[in-house]
Simulated assay, not measured.
Amino acid sequence: MILRMKNLFVQFTRLSAVMFFGLVASSLYATEWMPKAPSLAARNYILIDFHSSKVLAEKAADEKVDPASITKLMTAYIVYEAIESGLIDTDDQVKVSRKAGRLGGSKMFIEVGSLVSVHDLLSGVVVQSGNDASVALAEHVAGNEEIFADLMNKKAQELGLRESYFVNSTGLSDDSHYMSARDIAILSQALIRDYPQHYSMYSEHDYTYNDIRQPNRNVLLWRNMNVDGLKTGYTEKAGFCVVVSSQEDDMRLIAVVMGSGRQKRFDEASELLRYGYRFYKTSKLFGKQKALTEVRVWGGDKKQLGLGVPADIYVTLPRSKNAGVKTELMVYEDIIAPIEKGQELGSIAISYNGKTIEQSALISLYRIAEGNLWARISDSVIHLFQ
Rank of each mutant, 00 (worst) to 15 (best):
L151Y: 15
V24M: 00
F109S: 09
G229M: 12
A60T: 06
I88M: 05
R252I: 06
A61L: 02
K155D: 09
N153S: 08
Q359V: 10
A61M: 08
V227Y: 11
H119Y: 12
S85R: 08
F109H: 13
G308D: 11
V118W: 15
V256R: 03
K99F: 09
G160F: 00
I212T: 11
S351Q: 09
M108S: 06
F50R: 06
S245R: 04
L23K: 04
E340A: 13
I339F: 02
I357Y: 11
R262E: 11
N218F: 04
R265H: 08
I184L: 12
M74P: 13
A337P: 06
F12W: 06
R43Q: 11
W33S: 15
N153K: 11
A136P: 15
I2G: 15
Y195F: 13
I350H: 03
S380Y: 04
L191T: 04
S106L: 12
L15R: 10
L292M: 13
L151M: 15
Q359R: 14
I313E: 02
L307T: 12
N153I: 12
Q263V: 09
K341L: 03
T316C: 10
N131F: 13
E358C: 10
S117R: 11
A369H: 09
D312R: 10
R162M: 12
S283K: 04
V242A: 07
A76I: 06
A138D: 12
F266T: 02
G276W: 02
T90D: 11
E84G: 01
F266A: 00
W298R: 05
E145D: 11
L305Y: 03
Y80P: 07
A142C: 08
L151Q: 13
S347W: 10
A142K: 12
S27Q: 13
R376F: 02
I350W: 00
F12C: 05
D66M: 06
Q386M: 04
T31G: 07
M152C: 09
M1F: 14
L187H: 01
L307V: 06
G86L: 05
E63H: 07
M108W: 05
K6A: 15
V65C: 08
M74W: 08
K321N: 04
L159K: 05
S53N: 14
V227A: 08
A238D: 09
G261D: 08
K284P: 04
S39M: 01
T13V: 15
G86E: 07
A369P: 00
M34A: 04
K290M: 03
H177K: 05
I368P: 05
T316E: 01
V118D: 15
